[in-house]
Design a protein around this nucleic acid. Structure first.
Length: 487
RNA sequence: CGGGGUGUGGCGCAGUCCGGUAGCGCGUCGGCUUUGGGAGCCGAAGGUCCCGGGUUCGAAUCCCGGCGCCCCGACCA
């Protein structure tokens, strides 16, 4: 980087910026084991806030948490044909334990469909046992060759929901409901507005009938698959004999869904809102929403401003806000500003001797609009009374900004593969075109443009006029699709 | 797994071509002075130069072998 203090600007090298900001905001660090990472307290606090919000939403939609084991018998993974083909290349396998070779190798879970189905088969006998709606928070392992902090690591943290339903319709509906939960979470908590839709056959989850996803656009205009929800049909039920007696007395295979989001979301948050100063935390997920920096010249002043800072913290904490006072000595106020900006704290309050005299507080917002002042000086009471609404406003601004950026970089009405290639080379973004459903066209676009079919967008994302022709040029379009280069 | 690069105090690097026993910046520690946008001065600590072998009076430097990491491609939340 240019000097030790500044980050590589995003415009110069987005990938380098991302690595630096993740390390220097102390979200994570490289671990001794290649491909795996350490999530540091600041990064983990963001994840915990995500977990809490999501967990509440899962509970509100009728789910309970459970925990299934890390190790899965190899034979389980092998039961579902597409599933094993999809995951085999990235399995880590335990072959020895207790000093002996195991009779059957154990797979470190890459996902838990198989072991969970095996247990569900034991627990479910009747339609009265349905639906069964469980979720687990866990770590999983997928042996990746090319890794990046948060975005793709060998081990990562996630949640995986696994549900069982009596009918296909109900399972399909649930699959979509959870996609909606993810979308709501991403918009309302992360201020990251995804395009949601159906995955093509080639991009769907290994073993699913249909996969849906949330595709969030990062600041380099690449898509990040930020959450997926799968309708599994009876594929796993049939392999694991997950049957139930229906109301009519017949024996039926159950219908399943699974859905997950991971610590990848933290990477998405960084790449959605971060700037050249550091990361930007949406207030609802920020580990610290308000940082209070006391400023002094001598010991008398120090005592007075630190006392005031502490009083401000207490007053805001009472209003349910997450506030911290940075009273470190031998670190100048300016250094503290940079540090907390790098870590993305949404709002800073400065308290110096002049503020004490005037009974005011200085407020600085992490991201300013063009016409907004660098700092605002407000009477203390007014400042305290408005902090919460300022944070809410900031949250909305981030969402609107991200949505505007997504739309500004979405290209509709594109009719040729050449045009997709041009757009990709000119900075990328989401490209909407018609598609016949022919996998050969999908492959051709990928080879020519490096863009992949991100999804068949849901109704509200579709263009006003449905495309008439497939982007491949030879057939009529039967649907509209979104192309983008992706993480 | 293929192609390229790189490995030197905690971090970033110079030194390697042309062999002579390791240096710079940042950080860390101590002291004093400082503190409204990345403080200053003085002092100090900290290194099996990735590993193994070879050449040489002598290797961070040359030779051979290995390993790690990074970047670029094929697969992926």
């Amino acid at each position: 980087m240019a000097d030790d203090k500044a980050l590589t600007p995003r415009s110069e090298d987005f990938a380098a910026w991302y690595n630096e900001v993740v390390l220097r905001a102390e979200l994570a660090d490289y671990s001794p084991v290649r491909g795996s990472m350490v999530i540091r307290p600041w990064g983990y606090a963001i994840w915990e806030n995500m977990q809490r919000a999501l967990d509440d939403m899962f509970k509100a939609t009728g789910h309970e948490n459970a925990y299934f084991p890390l190790l899965i018998p190899m034979s389980f993974i092998e039961k579902e044909k597409e599933h094993v083909e999809g995951f085999k290349p990235e399995l880590a396998v335990v072959t020895h334990a207790g000093g002996k070779e195991l009779d059957e190798p154990l797979v470190v879970r890459p996902t838990s469909e198989t072991v969970i189905m095996a247990m569900y088969a034991k627990w479910i006998q009747s339609y009265r046992d349905l639906p069964l709606l469980l979720n687990q928070w866990a770590n999983v392992m997928r042996w990746e060759l090319r890794t990046r902090l948060f975005l793709r690591t060998a081990e990562f943290l996630w949640q995986e929901g696994h549900t069982v339903h009596a009918t296909a319709e109900e399972a399909e509906e649930h699959t979509r409901r959870m996609l909606g939960v993810y979308r709501t979470f991403m918009e309302e908590w992360m201020a990251m507005p995804p395009v949601t839709g159906l995955k093509s056959e080639s991009e769907k989850f290994a073993g699913a009938v249909r996969s849906y996803s949330c595709e969030a656009m990062m600041q380099d205009n690449k898509a990040l698959q930020a959450g997926t929800s799968h309708f599994l049909g009876q594929n796993f039920s049939k392999q694991f004999e997950l049957r139930f007696q229906s109301e009519a007395g017949t024996e039926e295979y159950a219908w399943n869904t699974s859905w997950g989001v991971s610590t990848r979301l933290v990477g998405g948050l960084v790449m959605t809102h971060g700037d050249d100063q550091g990361i930007v935390c949406p207030p609802r997920l920020a580990p610290v929403q308000v940082i209070v920096v006391p400023i002094w010249r001598n010991d008398d002043q120090r005592q007075a401003v630190v006392d005031k800072a502490e009083a401000v913290r207490a007053a805001l904490a009472e209003r349910g806000l997450r506030v911290r006072v940075d009273a470190r000595e031998h670190v100048t106020p300016g250094a503290k500003y940079y540090e907390w900006e790098r870590k993305g704290v949404p709002l800073r309050i400065e308290i110096g001797p002049k503020d004490l005299e005037k009974g005011q507080l200085a407020l600085a917002k992490r991201v300013r609009g063009e016409d907004e002042p660098r700092k605002e000086f407000l009477p203390e009471a007014e400042a305290l009374a408005t902090v919460a609404e300022r944070l809410e406003a900031f949250q909305s601004e981030l969402l609107e900004r991200a949505r505007a950026r997504r739309e500004a970089n979405s290209h509709r009405g594109v009719t040729s593969i050449d045009e997709i290639a041009e757009i990709m080379d000119a900075g990328g973004g989401y490209v909407y075109t018609g598609w016949s459903g022919d996998p050969a066209v999908e492959q051709a676009v990928k080879e020519r443009t490096k863009a992949t079919l991100r999804c068949i967008p849901g109704e509200e994302f579709r263009s006003g006029t449905a495309p008439a022709r497939c982007v491949g040029g030879e057939k009529d379009a039967v649907m509209e699709v979104v192309w983008a280069r992706a993480y």
